[in-house]
Design a protein around this nucleic acid. Structure first.
Lengths: 217, 217
DNA sequence: GAATGCCCCTAACGGTGTTAGGGTGTCAAG
DNA sequence: CTTGACACCCTAACACCGTTAGGGGCATTC
């Protein structure tokens, strides 16, 4: 296959799943493409630019399946679905959240997604300003949650992951931290879909409450 | 000064502000301590463990100034203050959010903070389960927001930061993305305290709304 | 047929985290 | 007082990293 910057990024993204972010080297990517490392620099400026391109791909993966809300579907469901798509895109690649976090993606598909967010919220009765300040909160929550979740389940620690639930639960001193011990089930279950959905609901409820508060004056 | 793992972490955290996470090398830290790099390995297992220790210090920095809510202060204010403390701790070090993100900190001060969160929310009328699922959402939002903010203002790009607000605003096609263009001020102003406070308020409002929804049955 | 420019190569540079193995000083036990 | 153990630091070196310099083949264009 002909090599260009996008092919490199796609290859890197595929290799990422095998070796993780720390194991992703230029030499490895080049080898997979049947080429030597310096060749990559003909197509891309440096590794940071490659990481940006990878982040863009992940982001686009989430944004491109985004459609205007169908009739009858609420803005709450639509917004939550957008967050779920983004989360799924990150989860579908090892260290996906770390790759995405802190990369301001600039791509047409993403602009479209932003525009769609604004329009959907405004059509639902939000002011444009509320929409513009509100939906990034959903985004930031989603990124924050997923980066933590992916870190806890990371394979970086090998077999003896110090964040294994049973290990953490055993560490809590029930005398000094009774509520923590009592709620350890809920606390440790925060990773995964259930925990994500709970927080996501909170943010969406917050959006609705903020609008109602304004409407009441 | 006598060298031990905590002194190493403090030194590393101080150097971090000068050189950034990518510039933080074992040799540099050792030099600052008047010692050679391999010596560090007598005190710590590897660099990852050092980064964990640094993250713990930042986290503790935010948690140790945490006190039970004074009489007359609402749970909303208390919870928001806790988020602000955490954010300030991250912002007070270059790349602080990146260091903290994805490091499950295990330290007494943090356990105390968790317990205090649970107690405060429960005393305010939340069920323990609501508290245990709710406050991580605040935490995740805070981390997500701060990591993005710090990435955008990062010096990693040198003088030609592609995320400079005026550069981004100019990039938007007002014909195809009218709402985005119109709201660009609000969108780009999401970084900084104003944007953070807006989202933080949303999450807190969401918590309240979730409780009220339960109470109504 | 010459020249241009794309695309890949080899070689190498300066740096990284980390390990191996050896020294020196302190301090307790015999 | 001697001996040994142990804490703590060292030098040397390994394997690997991102990246640059410079050169060569090969197609397309004048």
């Amino acid at each position: 296959m002909k090599i260009n910057s996008e092919v490199i990024a796609r290859t890197a993204l595929r290799l990422l799943d095998d070796v993780g972010l720390d194991g992703l080297t230029m030499r490895l990517i080049a080898q997979d493409l049947g080429v030597r490392a310096p060749t990559l620099y003909w197509h891309i400026k440096n590794k940071q630019e490659l990481l940006d391109a990878m982040a863009t791909l992940v982001y686009v993966e989430a944004a491109e399946r985004l459609e205007p809300p169908r009739d009858g579907s609420s803005w709450e469901d639509w917004l939550a679905d957008w967050a779920r798509h983004l989360r799924q895109a990150m989860l579908s690649h090892r260290d996906g959240a770390r790759v995405l976090a802190g990369t301001y993606v600039n791509h047409e598909t993403v602009h479209r997604a932003v525009e769609l967010n604004l329009r959907t919220l405004r059509d639902a009765g939000f002011t444009l300003s509320e929409a513009a300040r509100g939906f990034p909160a959903v985004l930031h929550y989603t990124i924050g949650h997923t980066i933590e979740e992916q870190a806890h389940t990371s394979a970086a620690y090998g077999d003896d992951n110090p964040y294994a639930p049973e290990r953490l639960a055993a560490m809590i001193d029930a005398e000094r931290f009774p509520l923590t011990a009592q709620a350890s089930g809920d606390l440790l279950g925060m990773d995964g879909d259930v925990g994500f959905e709970y927080g996501l609901r909170l943010v969406v409820l917050g959006l609705r409450a903020a609008r109602e508060e304004r409407e009441r004056g």
